[in-house]
Design a binder for these strands. Sequence first.
DNA 1: ATCGACAATATTGTCGACAATACCGCGCGC
DNA 2: GCGCGCGGTATTGTCGACAATATTGTCGAT
Lengths: 208, 208
Amino acid sequence: MAADVRVLEDLKAAILRGEFAPRQRLVEAELCERFDASRFSVRAALQALEADGLVERQRNIGARIREISLEEAVEISEVRQVVEGLIARRAAERATDAEAEELAAIGRRMHDAVAAGEVGEYSELNARLHASLRDIARHEKANGIIAHLHGQMVRHQFALSRVPGRSKVSVWQHQAIIDAVVARDGDAAETAMRAHIASVIEALRAIP
Amino acid sequence: MAADVRVLEDLKAAILRGEFAPRQRLVEAELCERFDASRFSVRAALQALEADGLVERQRNIGARIREISLEEAVEISEVRQVVEGLIARRAAERATDAEAEELAAIGRRMHDAVAAGEVGEYSELNARLHASLRDIARHEKANGIIAHLHGQMVRHQFALSRVPGRSKVSVWQHQAIIDAVVARDGDAAETAMRAHIASVIEALRAIP
DNA sequence: ATCGACAATATTGTCGACAATACCGCGCGC
DNA sequence: GCGCGCGGTATTGTCGACAATATTGTCGAT
């Protein structure tokens, strides 16, 4: 049961895993075969993914993977900058002692990962830090918007994580965020988060 | 042609016009009759509106108008606060002289409307000011998110505009935003916008 | 009178078939 | 040779019918 939900989740996961190239056409019949589903389910999934901003559809022509231009990626990051700023502020205002310690632990492991040159581990910790902040902030709307924006950024995000030397810079920005939250300083947390994402935007512009 | 798009637009407009009560059920057959469309089109529209956050659907049970609680309205406004802050900043950075003058004109008409006690006119000018700022900022992603959030707020927004005496307070907040944009001061524009929406949030909390 | 099971009804979920449209290659006229 | 129109094919759009499920109403036992 709930075949359409399954198709939606699988297809979205596949897109987020980068299994489709930007502007690649998504033919309904092909998706039907791949996911062993009816066109009905596939169609519903495509409509949902269109609303999600992951695919674009043209009437009577079909669906394709939406290409996110550099300018658009920058715009997305600018919105992320202020919304994650809000999240950082709320996290600083609401963190329990246990949650603060959890963030501090992530920070220590980040330093270790950078020292050991473990890029994959650092990237994982990075995602974990931002996720923890979202959990602590308990701001459903903000979290939802970040999830929405993040989905459109996967490709650029991936490119970013491969820029050599970035972790050495960003580890201190992350530390500043953690320190502000641990100190329960909302202003400082928002400022630190915005500075961090400002640097992400700079790096983004430097890639192509 | 494009029957589903027509149904989507009409239904959305009807919801935004407040023709349906929160938690009111939306039976597919009834909508078919009302909009003279097939279930196919109605269904597509409902799915789109679900993604839009205007209706909620439960499997095998149906669709209903989503009720936005006060807490949720506050969360929405908090996100609006930072995103409109971004928009105000960008507007200050990008406004042409003609655009700045347009904003100033709106500000003058606002003062007039308040002095004359014309609530409807003021409310209209308020919407126009925010819309102009969005146009000037030219930030598609931010504008899209604001549109998305605004749709969910219509009911509360309406309640807000009926609070007596609010216009006398907010007109000066609006003036501060306009002044900052005219002065091309991004920091001041963001600060003024955030202060303005902070006061909206306060008023929101005071309503029930 | 109250509760539970069961039937009747209302509503949504799913599908396959057909229609409409766009894309591509071919042939015809110039 | 080149442009233009014309079909053929691939793909999506739309619908009506039926299945699955939830809700409501009814009846009987206690």
